[in-house]
Simulated assay, not measured.
Amino acid sequence: MADTAEMGELTPRQRDVLDTALRLLVEEGDSLTMAAVARRASCSKETLYKWFGDRDGLLTATVQWQASKVRVVPVDQKKLDLVSLTESLEGYARDWLKVISSDTSVALNRVAIGHAGSGKDNLGAIVLDNGRFALAKRLKPVLDAGKRSGHLVFEDAETAFRTFFGLVARDVQIRLLLGDWPGLTEAAIESDAIRATQQFLALYGARKDQQVQ
């Protein structure tokens, strides 16, 4: 199955099927089967196997489809200004908070945690590879562009990403997984995205004497 960067190549019908699989994960969790998805999506199991391979392939595609909703605003990789960098970081934070607080993401992560180390399937690794790790891979070019343009100062992009991710996430995900609602309204998400970005820039933003002339 294609990675998150290629999710736009899915047909509308395939997207509908993946949305169906995500809804079933919310409703059934561990009980998700190819037969159940085929029945709910009104398609054949043969079609699912053709499109996604086995159950792990379907789960991978659903995670990728969900993760693709966290967008990275394109920036000028050669010459990036601070306004564009800030907008890209805020947009990423906003999308991530919207996605992670959705019923589908909460259900998907709960199932993945329940399966971790159990030998049932590879869902834990699938969620990590196509969720957190893939999202890091997509944002790091923006961070690197910010460094090249003289707006950010850091030695390691992974460390910088983890700091930004932590500032955005705080305790939100663990509270959601434990059934608490941290008040993520549209207004709260917007405020949190701006706050996290400003905190990140305060930590990694270049001082005037460090900026590229």
Rank of each mutant, 00 (worst) to 15 (best):
T159E: 14
S101G: 14
V26P: 03
Q199Y: 06
R170A: 14
A112W: 00
D156W: 05
G91E: 04
R15D: 08
S118F: 00
T197E: 07
R162E: 15
Q213M: 10
L32D: 01
E90P: 05
K147I: 04
N109A: 09
G183W: 13
D209I: 13
K140I: 12
G117A: 09
F154V: 10
T11W: 04
F133P: 01
A36I: 03
T163H: 14
A41E: 03
R13F: 00
L135V: 02
A93Y: 04
E186S: 15
A93H: 04
V153S: 13
L178Q: 12
V153N: 12
V63F: 03
N122F: 05
D103L: 06
T33V: 05
K69T: 06
Y92I: 03
G8A: 12
L177C: 02
G119E: 09
D171I: 12
F164I: 07
K147M: 11
A116P: 00
G53E: 07
E158F: 08
L10G: 02
D19G: 04
S105I: 00
N109K: 10
L123K: 01
R40T: 10
F165P: 00
F200H: 01
A112S: 13
G91W: 07
A206L: 08
K98R: 15
E87T: 09
T104W: 01
M34P: 01
H151K: 08
V106E: 04
R132W: 09
I194L: 14
V75W: 07
L10W: 11
L143W: 08
Q210R: 13
E90I: 13
V212D: 11
A206K: 07
G57L: 10
A136S: 11
S105R: 04
D144K: 14
Q211F: 08
T185D: 15
A2Q: 12
V142D: 01
F200P: 06
K98W: 05
V212R: 15
D56I: 08
A107M: 01
D3N: 14
R40C: 04
D54H: 08
S44I: 05
K45G: 14
L24W: 01
I100P: 01
Q210C: 09
Q211H: 12
I174C: 03
E186R: 14
H115N: 11
R132S: 06
A107R: 00
T197S: 05
P182K: 10
T47S: 13
L108G: 01
T60V: 04
T60N: 08
S31Q: 12
V212Y: 10
S149M: 14
P12C: 06
L152K: 11
S101D: 03
G91N: 11
V83R: 13
V127F: 00
Q64M: 10
A157L: 06
S84I: 00
R148V: 07
S149D: 12
A134C: 08
